[in-house]
Amino acid sequence: MESDAAIAAYARRFSDPDARARGRGPALPPDLARLEAEAIHILREVAASFRTPVMLYSIGKDSTVMLHLALKAFWPSLPPFPLLHVDSLWEFAAMGSFRDTLRDALGIDIRVHVNEEGAARGINPFVHGSALHTEVMRTTGLLQALTDGGFDAAIGGGRRDEEKSRAKERIFSFRDAHQGWDPRRQRPEFWRTYNTRVGPGESMRVFPISNWTELDVWRYIEAETIPVVPLYFADVRPTVIRDDVLLMVDDDRLPLQPGETPMMRRIRFRTLGCYPLTGAVESEAETLADIVAEMADTRTSERQGRVIDRDGDGSMEQKKRQGYF
């Protein structure tokens, strides 16, 4: 597959000295270079300050950029922490294969956690609704995985431009022993001197790409030639439109409503999550350059396609206080 070849070439860049020398493209534009250096500084601070850090890996573009930053920050060592994917069992099929190919090619430790209780109960976004599904399979699953792993720091790909409650998020966001986020206990952050201390059972969520925008992420992916899940590129795919959201029929678990027939449309995704909760956009962007151009002109925000943000005013913030990333 084309994507597999791209991943193999990418992995060689970290292992094969000749590929490394060739891989050196033109220098990053100054604004991206500054954002990259800031993120690398934060990742190293996590590695040096915590006993058992972990990097959350959702397979999306932001996660894949974070992985790339970690590969650069610690090279020639591999990142000194595992990656963790909380699998909702409703991911796009293309995401699982991307994750496994990337893991094998890079030789990194990606752990996959499923909320088995939720799976046994057959939690399903179509039957139980997006809110319950997300809470059980994502939020609870994440909390289980963090507790089981005894992780004292979890690195996430949150960005301050994503959603209004994120504009006030710290780079090092403190969580109490119940993984709770209390605005009163957040610590002021001066310079780049981060207070990394936590007590027993307490932990930190860390956001190294806080200061990036969606456009920065794409420009960086393009400049650094980072492979991403093919669903980000436009292609003709089977779709239905439901409640103004353009859904892709990724497998036969999508129950068609009376009168609904999947239609082939040229679409791509700006963000990837559970396929029944993730809206596509109609697009002609087939290359990274196309995507960057599309992003530079876009007039809608990235999370517009996310069903869970529509669960009420402040809904993202509530999920965050419950422990969602």
Partner: peptide, 28 residues
């Protein structure tokens, strides 16, 4: 706009970070 938590608890969180850009420069 502030956070729900700020409105409920009558507190303010110290800093919000806003981004904008021109063709020449990024601003935080």
């Amino acid at each position: 706009d502030g956070l729900e938590a700020e409105r409920e608890q009558g507190i303010t969180i110290d800093v919000a970070w806003r981004f904008f850009a021109t063709p020449r420069r990024r601003f935080i």
